[in-house]
């Protein structure tokens, strides 16, 4: 605790850096994955290719991708872009699959009736498909957010800022408290992000909670029916 108080300023700075490194991949990942996922959902041919490529990208171990990035991008090893690009790639790889599933899950009946009452393709996407895919997309972003915040700490291995610094520094100084502070801080950021995402979801998708409740009820009813 004394260490925390003595170093509160550094903890705060590193936390801010950590957040600055986490937010762009989450946002970019979402913005890129939604259209890609829609294409994979819409066109059968592209689906296999897109999902396979994402699967392969996701297979690459993160540290390998971070350290290979300067070579690929031609950047300096300490450039934050390396980390941001790497984590964006992971976010997209993870999110495209979810986005595809999300659009798949929108009932064909709804889409067709939207077409039947005169929605054009563009408005149908924005006003029908995207909102209805919302709950699944939100679940996907939450996973991406949590894992991104955790992955940012790996940047410390190549000398990047963020709470991961406490891991490498604490390990070198053989000082467990410092590492613990880093772990707790990382988890706190992840939790705060998650809460913000859930709140955003409640605001943007007010019907989803009703839906979830309905589904829960349906499930209880089904269990009862099975038991009967």
């Amino acid at each position: 605790m004394t260490w925390v108080l003595a170093n509160i300023e550094q903890i705060w700075d590193l936390t801010l850096d950590h957040i600055m490194l986490s937010v762009p991949p989450i946002l970019l990942g979402f913005l890129l994955a939604v259209p890609i996922g829609w294409v994979a959902h819409r066109y059968r041919l592209s689906r296999g290719v897109l999902l396979t490529v994402c699967g392969l990208l996701y297979t690459i171990p993160s540290l390998a991708l971070i350290v290979a990035m300067p070579t690929v991008l031609g950047t300096q090893i300490l450039n934050p872009a390396n980390l941001i690009v790497t984590l964006t790639i992971y976010a997209v790889a993870l999110m495209v699959r979810t986005a595809t599933d999300a659009f798949d899950a929108v009932s064909g009946d709804v889409t067709q009736s939207a077409t039947a009452v005169g929605f054009g393709a563009w408005r149908r996407f924005w006003q029908v498909q995207l909102p209805l895919a919302g709950p699944v997309l939100l679940a996907g972003v939450r996973v991406v957010s949590t894992s991104t915040v955790s992955l940012v700490t790996l940047g410390a291995l190549v000398g990047m800022s963020g709470l991961g610094y406490f891991f490498t520094n604490g390990y070198q100084r053989n000082f467990a408290t410092e590492i613990l502070v880093g772990i707790v801080g990382t988890i706190l950021i992840a939790v705060v992000f998650d809460v913000l995402l859930v709140l955003a979801g409640r605001m943007l998708l007010p019907w989803a909670r009703v839906d979830a409740a309905a589904r829960r009820n349906a499930r209880t009813a089904r269990t009862k029916a099975v038991a009967a």
Partner: peptide, 23 residues
């Protein structure tokens, strides 16, 4: 499962290495 996902691996590795004194 989701709590474990938030746990940073590098932190866990370094912490256990020191805390258990295996060094």
């Amino acid at each position: 499962t989701s709590a474990l996902r938030a746990l940073p691996t590098l932190g866990l590795l370094t912490y256990l290495a020191i805390a258990f004194g295996f060094g």
